[in-house]
Design a protein around this nucleic acid. Structure first.
Lengths: 137, 137
DNA sequence: TTATGTGCAAAGGGTTTGCACTCCG
DNA sequence: CGGAGTGCAAACCCTTTGCACATAA
């Protein structure tokens, strides 16, 4: 299972705008932020449409999604389509993509040792990037 | 900062009931579920109180919290106070506690290699436990 | 008594949905 | 033309908050 899903989604102005906004951003952005970005850029797109597209893109694996601590979903267009994780800066939002073969294997092993199958996992690492480490408390 | 915090919280009937409900449960439960459990057990406790206590307990490290995919916070009284993670069954909710020294180190290392400090991490593994693996599709 | 905890209900904030309309194909 | 995609606003859901009342110390 897995792999590319439905690439047959109708290309619309809104969809393109959202994809572009996402491509421009280097950090994770929430649906609302994307919506605001588009608005201030003159692109009038409904908030619901932003949510719908973001979800669709996430499902298709075009973008990555992670949940912030306060229950907000943030999206980001990722450089690689391969499975990977992120290290996000709590200060500025800077996000670095990292692969984690070690963790993948660990998750699989540990789960298996408890009799689990069809294992999935979520790994999020956050801290303060070099720049934010300096000034803040 | 850090370390055990205020153990000096006033003991109330509600608080005790919530703690007990949590102790009885073997899987993660949401605030609403706990509230329902108490209600059906005859313990009349306000939903807000459940939320407040659950939060407090989580802050004090008495219970573990994880966010479900659909943005719900679920709590569980953990056997050990030490840092650990869980492997949760998507079928029945069975949760197994596991330590992950390997992952802890990996997170620290990877983050550090990118200049990050004050690293924290979230790791959740889920799959189907042996029992659920058999019957379901 | 007095501060802390509780209950209720209303407010919040993010996300989803119903329905009529628009636009791609 | 026909259906996928869009917009708007109302609906949802979980969670938080304000305020008066109850209770542990």
């Amino acid at each position: 299972m897995s792999g590319q899903a439905r690439t047959e989604r109708r290309p619309t102005r809104q969809r393109a705008a959202i994809a572009e906004a996402l491509a421009d951003a280097t950090e994770f952005r929430s649906a609302q932020e994307i919506h605001a970005d588009l608005a201030s850029a003159g692109d009038r797109v409904g908030l619901a449409t932003v949510y719908r597209n973001l979800q669709a893109m996430a499902t298709d694996g075009e973008v990555d999604v992670i949940r912030t601590a306060d229950g907000e979903s943030v999206y980001r267009a990722c450089a690689t389509e391969d499975h990977h994780h992120h290290v996000v800066c709590r200060g500025c939002g800077l996000a670095v993509e990292v692969t984690a073969d070690a963790v993948e294997r660990w998750a699989e092993t540990v789960a298996a040792s408890h009799g689990f199958t069809q294992v999935r996992h979520t790994v999020e690492v956050d801290g303060l990037c070099r720049r934010c480490s300096s000034g803040s408390s």
